[in-house]
Amino acid sequence: MATFNAADHPHRRYNPLNGEWVLVSPHRAKRPWQGQQEELSPEMRPAYDPGCYLCPTNVRANGEHNPAYTSTYVFDNDFGALQATTPPGGFNKGGLLVAESERGICKVICFSPRHDLTLPQMDVAAIRHVVDVWQQEYEELGKLDFINHVQIFENKGAMMGCSNPHPHGQIWAQSTIPAEPAKETMQQAAYYSQHQRSLLQDYLDQELADTSRIIYQNEHFVTLVPFWAVWPFETMIISKRHLQHIGQLTDAEKDAFADAIKQLTTAYDKLFNISFPYSSGIHQQPTDGQEHPEWHFHMHFYPPLLRSATVKKFMVGYEMLGEPQRDITAETSAEKLRSLF
């Protein structure tokens, strides 16, 4: 019988951050593709669009005018999924039909006044302004007595459901800790309780020793393809220093974080020579007033594209009914991305 080789044979990989598994089937990457191919949207956009409700001075859907902003701009989402005025309430019918009200605040962050600039097209200094705003919003929202979690994220591209092409991200702050951060809190807390060390610090030490999944690093951050990655070109940016949240970043670390984002997103755009779609988001400690020494600051990037600009990864069938599955290995993805730096 042949000797197992992770580069060739089906296997499962464990994700210690959420306690779940992913099935890796590297041999399937060799199969021809006759499935759906996405249509590419034209990417030529003006620096200012008079019809865009996110551009400076334009009118938003609620009738308010945006200011003539010249840098990063934040406002309360006119159609937020969460509302600060939601009253307490809910019901429980036999433990099977359960609902509870959820209070929160949703904000929109326009990265730049330029309608035609995405993060990889902005310089590091401009991205640093975005990082500063993320830090400020996390700290201000986290101080509110009814906010226990602050989720900072971006959906880039129509393929990821972005409803406006003006480069922007969002913040959803709410009373409860959502499912994914809750899993990471539990897993990191269990590891910290057992080892008195950060799970991601020990993981990062192993990755730096191995190097096969590292794609970029600077003085303060490492960008890598996680060993347990689900999406074909999924990545993480992890702080080298064990810190819990963005509020603890020094000026030098904020510069390095902006640099890591710039380098990664630029490489993404080079991969298939398009404005690369993804969903990204920062995971950090909850703002529930508790000490969370287990938490280690990091940022996830989940891009959907698989083989080219027109072939995406679908989460269907087995993924919906069994567990996540991927074809190309994390090591192969890392090698392709690393070559673009």
Score class of each variant (00 low, 15 high):
residue 102 E to G: 09
residue 221 F to E: 01
residue 262 K to Y: 14
residue 313 K to S: 00
residue 93 K to Y: 11
residue 92 N to K: 08
residue 290 Q to E: 13
residue 160 M to H: 06
residue 314 F to D: 10
residue 290 Q to Y: 06
residue 117 L to G: 00
residue 222 V to E: 00
residue 179 A to H: 14
residue 26 P to R: 07
residue 113 P to Q: 03
residue 125 A to Q: 14
residue 146 F to I: 08
residue 96 L to Q: 02
residue 286 P to I: 01
residue 231 W to C: 02
residue 164 N to S: 04
residue 231 W to K: 04
residue 120 P to Y: 04
residue 255 D to A: 14
residue 157 G to P: 06
residue 106 C to G: 02
residue 339 S to M: 05
residue 107 K to L: 09
residue 91 F to T: 08
residue 220 H to D: 10
residue 190 A to V: 07
residue 24 V to H: 05
residue 42 P to S: 12
residue 86 T to E: 14
residue 283 H to T: 08
residue 180 E to G: 02
residue 337 L to K: 03
residue 276 F to C: 03
residue 68 A to H: 15
residue 341 F to I: 06
residue 20 E to S: 14
residue 182 A to S: 12
residue 146 F to V: 13
residue 183 K to F: 06
residue 232 P to D: 08
residue 268 Y to N: 03
residue 92 N to F: 07
residue 123 D to T: 06
residue 164 N to G: 08
residue 140 E to L: 00
residue 212 S to F: 03
residue 30 K to N: 07
residue 289 G to P: 02
residue 245 H to A: 03
residue 208 L to S: 02
residue 140 E to V: 03
residue 319 E to P: 12
residue 194 Q to L: 09
residue 155 N to P: 00
residue 89 G to F: 09
residue 120 P to V: 02
residue 229 A to F: 01
residue 29 A to L: 13
residue 48 Y to N: 00
residue 43 E to K: 12
residue 126 A to S: 13
residue 334 A to M: 10
residue 158 A to I: 08
residue 332 T to W: 03
residue 118 T to F: 04
residue 148 N to Y: 05
residue 296 H to M: 10
residue 329 T to C: 00
residue 2 A to Q: 13
residue 107 K to A: 04
residue 186 M to I: 14
residue 239 S to Y: 03
residue 171 I to N: 02
residue 335 E to G: 06
residue 322 G to T: 10
residue 249 L to C: 11
residue 41 S to V: 12
residue 142 G to A: 00
residue 283 H to R: 11
residue 89 G to N: 07
residue 228 W to A: 15
residue 83 Q to M: 08
residue 16 P to K: 04
residue 229 A to C: 05
residue 319 E to C: 09
residue 167 P to A: 07
residue 130 V to M: 01
residue 317 G to D: 10
residue 93 K to M: 09
residue 186 M to D: 13
residue 150 V to W: 05
residue 42 P to G: 15
residue 121 Q to R: 09
residue 326 R to W: 00
residue 161 G to Q: 12
residue 101 S to F: 06
residue 291 E to Y: 06
residue 135 Q to S: 10
residue 114 R to Q: 10
residue 166 H to I: 04
residue 186 M to N: 08
residue 303 P to C: 10
residue 273 N to T: 11
residue 309 A to E: 03
residue 5 N to K: 13
residue 149 H to W: 07
residue 47 A to D: 08
residue 282 I to R: 00
residue 92 N to V: 11
residue 159 M to R: 14
residue 15 N to Y: 05
residue 276 F to P: 02
residue 106 C to A: 04
residue 65 H to G: 03
residue 204 L to P: 06
residue 51 G to A: 14
residue 33 W to Q: 07
residue 28 R to M: 13
residue 109 I to P: 00
residue 51 G to W: 05
residue 45 R to S: 08
residue 130 V to N: 01
residue 105 I to W: 02
residue 198 S to Q: 04
residue 203 Y to L: 14
residue 238 I to Q: 00
residue 117 L to D: 01
residue 176 T to G: 04
residue 239 S to A: 15
